[in-house]
Amino acid sequence: MPETVQLFITCLVDTFHPAIGEAMVRVLNRAGVRVEFPSEQTCCGQPAFNAGLRADARPLAEHTLRVLDGAPGAVVIPSGSCAAMLRHGYLDLFAGQPDWLARARALAERTYELCEYLVDVRGITELGACWEGTLTYHPSCHLLRGLGVDAQPRLLLGAVKGARVIELPEREDCCGFGGVFSLEHPELSAEFLDRKLANFEKTKAPTLVTADTGCLIHLQGGLRRQGRAGRVVHIAEVLARGGG
């Protein structure tokens, strides 16, 4: 029997970039995994949690726990940020509520970001993907430092046939998305964005890969606004391409 996982798609992929979700299902299928999608899921509550409005975050987190509690297997997420919310954020959010905290702990233990799941749990780095051209990778902060996942996406990208992966200068710098931060402090967010896009331009790569849709929307929006060349793709879209 193939392994079954629960897909937590994230509100951003669901709402703005459903194609990333489709790519992710293909990638997981290719890794020998059957995907289930608990259809009651909405948003993990991270935007309100990060703003400090925990009363607004709690109902969404409780909803997410209820939706995922009964569903068997690992929960796989195409986002370092949302995975970090489920793994770390919920423990703080429910710190004073033992019942919910126990449920949050149980969920945290079976929650994985996509690259982390493929490499660490499934032991897969080679998915038979093909990509013609040069790529450079932006590690999102929550994936890199929040979850400590860095080698995994790099191994996966390194195994993509035809792709030349080059290092993004100052790769570990934040891109300036930061969720509600980019609404509250647009001036600072714009500075980080410019720096990141300038570094992307230095690589001369046409494609910037990231594993977080928040960063992706922010970076892509910056490229559009400034009329710069290049595009930003989610790592699932790269891994789903070709082969099979």
Binding site: V13, D14, T15, P18, A190
Partner: peptide
């Protein structure tokens, strides 16, 4: 202030 926002998908993932 510094960037565009994609339109919401006509058909969301769900």
């Amino acid at each position: 202030f510094s960037k565009d926002l994609p339109r919401l998908a006509g058909t969301p993932f769900r």
